[in-house]
Computed example of a mutant assay.
Amino acid sequence: MSETSRFRSTEGSHGALKGAQTAWDMLSEEQMQKHITTGCEELDAILGGGIHCKEVTEVGGVPGIGKTQLGIQLTVNVQIPVECGGLGGKAVYIDTEGSFMVERAHQIAEGCISDLLDNTAHRLKDFPACPERLQPNSFLSNIFYFRICSYTEQIATINYLEKFLEEQKDVKIIVVDSITFHFRQDFDDLALRTRVLSGMSLKLMSFAKKYSLAVVLLNQVTTKFVEGSFHLTLALGDTWSHACTNRIILQSV
């Protein structure tokens, strides 16, 4: 087949492609999209309203800065009822470090409920069933927890999520705490690690788009030598930095 014939045959197949979207449609869809509040007005403002659905957000910082706290907070805040301006969704928490604290999740749920009852009582009057759902135990029952002990388990769990998300239609956030842990300790072949992480990030991105949910990846920090001095940077290298839509580095002040 000549080059001209090959071009014409592929040109005909391209005409059957569908799914194009205008930039105006994209903007309108983004403006209508609800966000998950972080619980901090200043951070929400920086992020344009909170954590975005259909996007992958990476959050990094030194140990003890509050990454896990933020991850747990988001699994609670995603459950704020639609009547109160939330998503009314469920959460998946993938714990690779064993840092998830169910007692802390219970406390955060109690605080969230207290704030909702104080600030949205006028809305709740029109929804009698809503206060019944505002119980700490109800919030905890909507957080699906996976404990991961190796990078192979991490890969298997993320592969399993596709089936899980089909069954649990209301999941609106996936938190991985942390994406880094097993890949920093168990991998000597950096090229293989890059390929595995790339495949994982593509799958998480596809989940975010397909199911209109937010993916939040908590990351550790490392030092990088730049222009004669060491600087803190997120772990997994420069290649990984392209895997996320948004990157947040928490620092103490």
Rank of each mutant, 00 (worst) to 15 (best):
I113V: 06
H182N: 11
S178L: 02
V196R: 09
K169V: 07
K90F: 01
S241N: 07
E11V: 15
V59F: 05
S28P: 00
S212E: 13
E3M: 10
A23S: 14
F183M: 05
F225L: 08
R104T: 09
L117V: 13
V196C: 09
K18Q: 15
R247V: 01
G228S: 05
T10S: 11
G237W: 03
R147A: 10
T194M: 01
T75P: 04
F100W: 03
S141R: 07
E83S: 04
G85D: 01
K90C: 08
Q107P: 00
W24F: 14
A243S: 08
S9L: 15
V226R: 13
C149L: 15
G49D: 06
S99A: 07
G49R: 03
I173V: 01
L27E: 14
D115Q: 15
S178K: 10
L213S: 06
L134G: 09
Y160W: 13
C84L: 02
V82D: 10
H35D: 10
F100N: 05
G86Q: 05
Q220E: 11
R8A: 14
R123G: 00
E58A: 03
F181I: 07
T10A: 11
Q168W: 10
Q21Y: 09
F139E: 00
Q73I: 01
H14R: 15
R247P: 00
D95W: 04
L218C: 05
S241W: 05
E41I: 11
G66E: 02
V102F: 01
N246Q: 11
K34W: 08
D126L: 08
S198R: 12
T194S: 08
V76A: 03
F187L: 09
E58Q: 03
T194N: 12
K224N: 12
R193H: 06
F207Y: 12
V56E: 08
F183P: 05
T223L: 11
L234G: 10
K209L: 10
T239A: 11
H231L: 12
P81G: 01
N137T: 15
A214S: 04
H35N: 15
T194E: 08
F164E: 04
R123Y: 14
K18F: 12
C53P: 03
E58S: 02
L70Q: 00
R184N: 02
T10W: 12
E55F: 04
G64Q: 10
E42A: 14
R8S: 13
